[in-house]
Amino acid sequence: MTYLAPLMLNRDRKIRRSLYEAMVVIIAGCFAGVLSNTFSSRSIPLLGEWNKAYGVPSPGGAHASTHGNIEIHLSDAQRLLLEGALFVDARPREAFLEDHIPGARSVTEDTLPDRLSEISEGVAQGKKVVVYCQGMDCDESHIIAAKLREGGIGNVCVFAGGLGEWKAAGSSLEKGEEQK
């Protein structure tokens, strides 16, 4: 077997060399990734906010979908519905037609500019705006809430549990088109 020794030595060297090279590639890649993230307009921090116990999961940072402490819980949402708050369903139109929170308005990113005046009227009457989507894993509600705030509507909150939590609690639902 001694005649195989040089071959084995050569193989070991090749493996070691490949590992060294891979290490260089990975270090250079990490550097490139960090550099690109630093100068990106959509940069994220090293640590995100992915724990559902603290709200809708997001990568955090300035461009994350969740901003400020505007999330409310199921009990708050149920109370606000009784108080006549304006509920905004941020899910796609098809999902809204299947079922939604009673009295909710279907508003997506595309339809928001057309519905802004209607929502403003509701706010002018002293109503609070509650935006929701399917649950903790969606961020449409936060996106709509942020745009409403940009549009000058400050009295906005997000029901983070969304329709999923609403349904699980056995709360009442409505189907089909919006009620006028």
Binding site: V25, I26, A28, G29, C30, F31, A32, G33, V34, L35, S36, N37, I44, P45, L46, L47, G48, W50, N51, P57, P59, G60
Partner: peptide
Amino acid sequence: PAFTINLFAIVLPGIELIAGIF
């Protein structure tokens, strides 16, 4: 795990880019 998601999102594309170019 939650604490590794952002780190992975930052470095993986960089590694893909450098390995691809090389």
